[in-house]
Design a protein around this nucleic acid. Sequence first.
DNA 1: ATATGTGCAAAATGTTTGCATGGTA
DNA 2: TACCATGCAAACATTTTGCACATAT
Lengths: 142, 142
Amino acid sequence: MSDNNQALKKAGLKITLPRVKILDILQQPGNQHVSAEDLYKILIEQGEEIGLATVYRVLNQFDDAGIVIRHHFEGGKSVFEISSQKHHDHLVCLRCGKVIEFSDDVIEQRQLDIAKSHGITLTNHSLYLYGHCDNANCADNA
Amino acid sequence: MSDNNQALKKAGLKITLPRVKILDILQQPGNQHVSAEDLYKILIEQGEEIGLATVYRVLNQFDDAGIVIRHHFEGGKSVFEISSQKHHDHLVCLRCGKVIEFSDDVIEQRQLDIAKSHGITLTNHSLYLYGHCDNANCADNA
DNA sequence: ATATGTGCAAAATGTTTGCATGGTA
DNA sequence: TACCATGCAAACATTTTGCACATAT
């Protein structure tokens, strides 16, 4: 909790209840890749008095500060994820919705080379692999 | 033009003016990666009487039929592209909006290996590299 | 002739902003 | 105290839908 406050301070953001709560929720294991709406519902369920607009504002500030990463998914809405220290990409099972994080140095290097060869300086990228699990119980946690 | 009609028929779509016109525009070299709004404006400029809703409907039908591919770039709106036979990924300049298509066998192979090693059979993927041009005139065609 | 497609306007998202109030440093 | 943050409602932007009319086969 103290490190959270630290992170907020470093970003020049005051320590307020909405921000602390949101940061807290985003760090819980089950809440990787949540939308603003998801977050809002969780907060309401927890009895917090918060507005959806505040959730959006806080998420945007966190994005600017590099505290979260915004992903653009199919379906039009953005999902957010705590930006861990190590970059990673995503492998998504289209049947059960499972999300696996991975990181591959070969791909990373190749991306840099490709961008460079086209005269572009890379700032970021998004890579999603879509498929389906081989397990029989795949669809269970859909 | 005849092949276009063919493509429409194969998708079970009647040969109508809006669909033919839209397909036509999407095939012109300068119109890779256009949004629905872009398309609508082009059609209006050409003197067509068409509604924005029709553009959206036709693009969705084309997407379902595999005639176009829908991309979710940063910025919230979808852009569409004629689905060519050869797969490729995208390099996007965030300053001037230029889109470069590329394809890399090393990355493709690596993706397959990664998916397999996680017990997932890959069906498709999306890879976007974002950055900015090194050219001085980069921002000109923003 | 019949089923499908179209244009328009209204509705349905997802997200941002203006403003008065409330909380933090 | 001064400034930043919040909640609410209204505004916005993009995309979808309902309906009466028009068009393709």
